[in-house]
Amino acid sequence: MQELRKERLDRGVKVRSESIYAISSLKEIMFIIGPGLLLAALLLILPLFVSSYWQGVLKITGVYVLLAIGFGFLANYVGLVSLGGALFVGVGGYLSGGLNYFFDLPMIVTIPIAAVGGALICTILLLPALPLRGVYFAIVTLVYPMALSRIIVATGAFRGTDGLPGLERFPVGIGPIYLIFIVILICLYLLSRLVNYEDFGLVLRGVKDNELSIKASALHLTWYKIQAVFIAAFMGCFAGAYLTHLYGWVGTSLLAQDFSILPVAAAVVGGPGTIFGPLVGAFILVPISEAMRDYGTLRIVFYAIILVIFVVFWTEGILDYLKRKYEQFEHWVEM
């Protein structure tokens, strides 16, 4: 009997599109940008075809997508496991809410200020923790939102547990969905360019692999980490400011652990190999979670089960699997 073995080879179009021939024909160009275009088209068309209830779900999904992309970027490309989603959302939310409540600034001003200013604040807060790696960094980022929420309750700042009511709200309709989806698409595009084609992204991946070698190459390690955290914090703070004006209210619930934990699950489900993976994960998990709202906190159990299944049996994640199928084909060969 002749022994057979499954061989895995790159598709011809992938090999061609990696080289100068990438621009030789429409087929190669589409091979490269096709998936991105498809994603953009899906995101832009989807809001038109769902009921108003699910439009609401899409807005929340968008918030989690931004957090998940930020988490995936820090964890998979910089090596910082950040559970700071709640910190980013909280700081961004309270900043934009505070500006709107105390200074009567319109949201067209407060959202950009909250995104940039909040990212700065978060980066400064996390600065002492930047030399830490792995679980230590994760703990610090987890502790900040807990502490902030206690401080707000104890001191009564920002009106304590009552929160700031009556803030400016987004108009009804699909406009707000497009706002966050377009921000997501821009972030995805810039991030994937950054990690795949720019020297800066190359250094960041080096930071993940070996910090000592980065230092030995005369690169300022902390400065690169600061920039990476700023990028992730920017996305998170924008999400927080968005959430504030979505509800027209700011409270300590913006510092809830959900914003820290769900992005982790989304990044695991989506797969660690791409910037797009966490987005896919969030788009699967958040609507499922929404559909299970009737079961209350049992949802957490459900998440945990999904997370365990993916971590143990399918570490690859959905998008990495699809990417492999997209770029490679398999056939049987004789040994």
């Binding site: 022994e3 073995r5 499954k6 895995r8 143990v312 049996f313 399918w314 570490t315 690859e316 990495d320 699997y321 492999r324 040994m335």
Partner: peptide, 11 residues
């Protein structure tokens, strides 16, 4: 296999 990395086969 779980990582989806390279497959190892032997005979």
């Amino acid at each position: 296999m779980r990582k989806g990395g390279e497959r190892i086969t032997w005979y």
